[in-house]
Design a protein around this nucleic acid. Structure first.
Lengths: 120, 120
DNA sequence: CCAACATATGAATATATGTTCATATATAGG
DNA sequence: CCTATATATGAACATATATTCATATGTTGG
């Protein structure tokens, strides 16, 4: 246990031991930031639907918009966020942009969460 | 493939087949809502830290606040959200409230996400 | 009963976020 | 070239959200 880290605890509350041992379980700041950003991205109904739509075929923007009955612009904005986090990738073909999942990891995460939601 | 569902597609865009087959992969609305709420809850740095803090010991509110260097009120508000989604439970003992994870599922989901974040 | 303490909660505030609208860019067809 | 189409993007707006402050509730010890 780190002495300096505990110094603050002892003045502020009653269980410095517990606090310090719990703190060691915390991932570092970068991991927390990245992880919460990942979950936040998947934590929006529109983006969640986009990702599950893409689970087997690539789709172009207008197809996604039509499938979700939403405007093209809204979808495009969300795709930008997903692209930025490398959750989706795309290829251009003529006027169209075909989007697909960038790795299967995310889909597994979603399916994992789905089990959780459907089981309880 | 559902005829009625496809009717709209055919007027609006170019690939009705793809759209309709992609749509079938979508979980129902309730699942999407629950799933995105779950991910949204975990998609906040403070709540993510709270949940990982709790992964092995129960903790009282002031310990969590001290461990995260945050105000008691902020933690209490977040715990309420986590409680509402049954991600944490608590027991009262005298003046203190001891919080713990309500099931291990969530923790596994978080660790799963952590792999994703740390691997790329 | 009173003071000290732990927690909960409502109101207020600042910030983040999702969608829409208008428009820009780029490509294909005539 | 000019038009139609697909996509991207900036600005604006409405809504959601996280934290803080003040305060309420409930418990313990004197």
């Amino acid at each position: 246990m780190n002495r300096e880290e505990c110094a603050a605890c002892e003045q502020l509350c009653e269980h410095p031991h517990i606090i310090c041992s719990a703190k060691q379980q915390l991932p570092d700041d970068a991991a927390i930031r990245n992880l919460s950003e990942l979950f936040k991205l998947v934590g929006d109904p529109t983006r969640l639907k986009i990702l599950t739509l893409l689970q087997s075929h690539e789709l172009c923007v207008c197809d996604i918009a039509a499938a979700l009955s939403m405007g093209q612009s809204a979808i495009s904005h969300q795709l930008r966020l997903l692209r930025g986090a490398r959750l989706v990738k795309f290829r251009k073909e003529g006027k169209s942009a075909w989007y697909s999942l960038d790795d299967e990891h995310v889909l597994r995460l979603i399916l994992h969460g789905l089990e959780h939601v459907q089981h309880d």
